[in-house]
Every structure is written in C-alpha cells, then in structure tokens.
Design a protein around this nucleic acid. Structure first.
Lengths: 337, 337
DNA sequence: TTGAAAGCGCTAACAT
DNA sequence: ATGTTAGCGCTTTCAA
C-alpha cells in the first residue's frame, strides 16, 4: 500500500505538504503541487480513508436506518440518498433493522462508536429519547419521513405532510361522488399510520360525510395484507365504493381483491394509494395515488445530515415538511350508482 | 467520547488489557474481566471502529457494487447480504454504479484506498483486468451472479448456472406442447444476457425444435421494455404461443402486453420468467418462473468475501455455482390447439 | 511556502 | 496475567 509518506519522499517534501496538496492546494506553491501530483500519479497513491477519519475525528460514511429494504419504497429512497451522499464525498451504509429494537440499538451503538458520522433514521421502535442520546454523542441524526413530527422537535426532521396527503385522497374520492369509504391503514414501526388516516377522515368530515360513512381496517404494508383488508372491507355492508390505502402496496392488493370478487376498478370500486412507488404506474389498472416527493426528501435528508456533520447546517432548515401531490390515473372514477 | 484509556484508568489496568477483554477475554483473569466490563458499562464506552480499523489494517465494512438498487432483484439480495454481514460483525456499503464506468471506477478507487476490506461486484462494465488489479491491492473481491463465468476464473465467483436456467424454461414450455417460441432477452452491464438465451435455445434444439421456431427480441430489464418486446414478438407471424423472458420484470411486461392484445395468459399465451423476484408470485396471473437462490447466493458471497478478508477462505470454494429451479404457477399452460 | 511534531484511539508484539 | 511500547496513515497546529 502506498502511503502519504512515500509520496512525500518521492516529491521531496513532507507529509504535511502532500496533505495540503490534497485538500488545500491553494496553500501550496503551484510548482510543488505539480511535483506532488506527479508523485501521486506515478505511485498510484490513494489516501487511506480510515487514517484520515481517525485524524479528523469523523468518517466519510453516513448510515441509513430503515426497517426493510425489500419494501419497494426504500430502494427508490436509497438510490437518491446514495447519489446525494456520493456527490458530497460520502458513502452510504444501509442498515436493515427489521423493526427489531435489538438490531436497531446495536447499529446505533456502533454508529455512536464512530461507524458513521451521521444517521438518517427512517423509522424505529425506539423512543425518541434513545435517539437524542446518540445525537448528544456528536453524531448527526436526522429523522426522515416520520409521521408524528410534532413529537420530535428535538431532532431535525425532513418529512411530508401526511395529514395533507390523506386529505388530498379524501377530496379526490369525495369529488368523484363516493359516499361509502373504506380505509386500509398500514402500520409502520411506530404503530399504525394514523396521521394519514386522520387527515383522510377529517377531510371527509369537512366534505360533509358522516362518520359512519368510513370503515377502517388495520393492515400491514404489503400486497397480501392489502388484499385481505380489502376483502374485509368489501364484505362489509353497505359495501364501500371507494378505498383509500395508506400506502401503494396495500392499494394494489385491494385491486387484486376487487378483481377476485368480480368487481371492476374503477367502475365498481375506486382505489387510491399513497406514496407513488414505481410499481403504482406499472400496475394495471394504473394506480391513482398521492405522490410523496421521495427522491427529493432523500436528497434533502442527506444534505441536512452532512451539513450538520460539517458544521454548516443552517438552523432554519432543521425541520422541513414537503407537500404531497395527487396523481390521477386509472384506478379511481366517478361513483356509478 | 469515552476512550479505551479512560476505561483502563477506571479499571486500574492498561489499555492492552481492556483491548484483550474485548476480543480475547479468555486471556484475562475473570476477576479483571469483571472489573473492566464494569468500567465499560459505567462509562458507556464504545470502541472506536475507525481506530481499530487503522490499527488492524482492515475495516469492518464490505462494499456491494450493483448497477441500480431500484431493480427489485437487488433489494432482496441486499437484505440477505446485509444480514450475513451483520452476523459476522461487518457493515454493508451499498454502491449504485448506474452502469457508469466512471462511478464504478471511483468507488473501486476508494475501496482500494481502504474504504472497505472487501467488495462484492454484481456486474460491471469494467474489464476483469481492472478488478484483478484491485484484488491485487489486498482487497477481497468476489464476483457475484456473473453469467460469463468461464472468463472469470482469476477471481472467486458465486453465481448460478444460467444456461441450466434457460434449459429448464425450454423444457417446461416444450413439455406443454408449444411450438412457436419467443424470447425476450434482457441486458445486464456486460451486454445481453446471452447465456440464459443460449441455454434456452440449446434445450429447445435438444427437444427437437427447429431453429426457426424461436424468435428473439432484445430488451431491457424492465416491465416497460418487456411490454414493448412482447408486442413485437406477438405481432410476428406465425404468432408465438410461449414467451421466455430472461428476467421476471420483462415477463410481467409481456403479460401486460398480452392483456392489451386481448390474449389470455396462459390460455392464448404462456409466459415464463427467470429469477423469481417477490413480485412474480404477487402478480396476476402469478408468474411461472425459474427461481434463482438469491438469498443463498447473497449470503454465500458475503461469507466468501469475509473468509478471504480474515484469511480463512478454503481454496476449494472460490467458485460456487448454484442450481436454478422451475416454479410453476399460473402463467404457463398447455398449448391450446 | 514548507517542515516538525504531536496526536487520533486502538492493536499487537514483546517484556515482565 | 498484565504492562510497555511502537506503530497504523493521516491531519493539524505551530515554527521556521
């Protein structure tokens, strides 16, 4: 392995100068820069990131904690996050917690022990307390996509207005003339995605729908679970004509359930999801959904975390909430009497 | 930050002993272990992984290079890989190369400069030469899921018998009585997935089908592209009654194309995929496919890489080829008259 | 503009 | 069984 010292020797300077050439070239005489660069090239030198991290007191890696990357939402997020990190010279460590507090804690422990200089926490069964503790150890932690944001003011957070997302769905369905609604509520690590539902229910009420016009079923964030939940909903009476799922996977499951019951989407049943994962528009019928600016949030989270790490974080932006957007496709339509 | 030295002071021993307690407790008197552990607990000490890495000459991270995690095959792979890595005390760095040689090279550069002590390379547009070079720098590199394995004997490799996978598909379709076949050939970083196709074509020939009974269309690894490709295939004459796609995403696209053409799957058209991603069984009709032992391969790759890193790699197993398996579901059926 | 020197926190011989 | 010591490769004051 070629070291800084070898380069220095070859360029007839000391390590300090080589180090400067690498990071503050303007502090070195152009002529010397030349010579050092030549030595670097000839020797095929690559800085040792570990040594650099030890000397500087921080690594060039960022950890991303999520529950399970197998949920199609995450890969889209990870891609965007990794791009932003790379752009800034950082690497991304992906940590699947499987919603297991033990795994989560173990990761956090190592991170606090200098695995990464920042963490983006997408969900967790840990209390905010534990997170705040590790933040106090000098690691940049940013919460991401959290629903119960008001409870998390202590830590920076980038997320979307989930209540507004639910409201958008309600307005769309109500505007289409529907009267009997069903909601499939998924569950994240922090329990059911109630904010999305609350936003939906509140908007329904605001549009003049009585409380009993909405039937709710708890479900999990998967096609299979959405299928089961929708079955329950459709067997209820009076049958619902519109279903809001708090995430796209469940919405897709609902469409499959409708098909199995001989109902046509959107003629007999409207289905609207939330997130707009790639699969949403690839499915038939293409899913109407509430789009979350996933890539944007990913990039912003990474940027925020790194600004904190590098001590350039503007205090203003420690709390960013993006807006959701209605995307109308083929799975929703006017109520046919 | 609590350091080893502080723990040592509190436990009234030296750093060496604390270090031993952490990694070779059997070398330390039980009584002392107790005392040190107590100090660690009281101080909330966490070893600094960076310092450890520098001292030991290797990091506790493993890099995984893949083209784009957004392809549903990868998350399944990543999950399994990360679990195996964690089990062994390592962390996983995910590197999306986007099939861009510049990005790939940049990553490899940093890895060689001590970012990770091993890399799993899932595909690349780089020559084997470049990979061998970085392996020579002392980094464990293992190739994974490569098709043209025979060309890669210099580097360890864990993959599956893609020709056999193609053959399995051919045997299934042929056994169902089909006579006119279409193949959708996807493209990885190294060009089209020809081995899969070759295996398919050879098996077709072996089953007595003349060469002209097979129409081939080049495509990309996506639903959209599979859709387009299948359209081409079905417009050809005589129309094919069975389509083999070299990956599941394209197969799903083919099923959608059939639906749009008013053809029923499997009655009018049989479709078989390859990989068995999760989506394959979630789709309607559920996709018949050739299953690749993804999780198994991921775990094996990580295990192999880490064994190499830790110098315990058995020379025998530097080259492992797993077998594919036919999974019959709803998208294939006997040719109807 | 460049050099000297003292670490960063931990590991690993080698001593004791 | 525990301590001493010399690094690992780089960064970073502080001098020159």
């Amino acid at each position: 392995m070629v070291t800084l010292a070898e380069v220095a020797r070859r360029a007839k300077v000391t390590g300090a100068t080589v180090s400067n050439v690498l990071r503050n070239p303007q502090k070195v005489k152009p002529e010397t820069v030349e010579r050092v660069m030549a030595a670097i090239r000839e020797l095929g030198y690559r800085p040792n990131l570990t040594a650099r991290a030890l000397a500087r007191g921080r690594t060039s890696t960022l950890a991303l904690m999520l529950s399970n990357i197998t949920n199609p939402f995450y890969p889209e997020f990870v891609l965007a996050a990794e791009r932003e990190a790379r752009k800034r010279g950082y690497f991304l460590l992906v940590c699947n917690t499987d919603d297991d507090p033990a795994i989560t804690r173990a990761y956090l422990d190592q991170i606090a022990g200098s695995l990464a200089s920042g963490v983006i926490v997408m969900n967790t069964d840990l209390g905010e307390r534990e997170l705040t503790d590790i933040a106090r150890k000098g690691i940049a932690v940013v919460l991401c996509m959290w629903e119960h944001v008001q409870a998390s003011l202590a830590l920076p957070c980038v997320t979307v207005d989930f209540a507004a997302a639910g409201a958008l769905a309600a307005a769309h369905l109500s505007g289409l003339g529907h009267r009997k609604f069903g909601a499939l509520v998924g569950a994240g690590s922090g329990g059911p995605q109630t904010i999305r539902l609350d936003g939906f229910a509140a908007a329904l009420a605001a549009h003049g729908h009585p409380e009993k016009s909405l039937a709710v079923v708890q479900s999990h964030d998967s096609i299979e679970s959405g299928y089961e939940g929708a079955m329950q909903l459709m067997r209820g009476k009076p049958a619902v004509t519109a279903i809001f799922a708090t995430n796209d996977l469940m919405a897709i499951g609902a469409m499959q359930a409708a098909a199995d019951l001989g109902k046509r989407v959107p003629d007999d049943l409207s289905v609207i999801g939330l997130t707009d994962i790639t699969l949403a528009h690839q499915f038939r019928p293409a899913l109407t959904t509430i789009r979350l600016p996933t890539a944007d949030i990913a990039a912003r989270s990474v940027a925020l975390a790194l600004e904190m790490v590098e001590g350039t974080a503007p205090t203003q932006e420690r709390y960013v909430v993006r807006a959701p957007e209605l995307i109308v496709r083929e799975s929703t339509g006017p109520r046919k009497r």
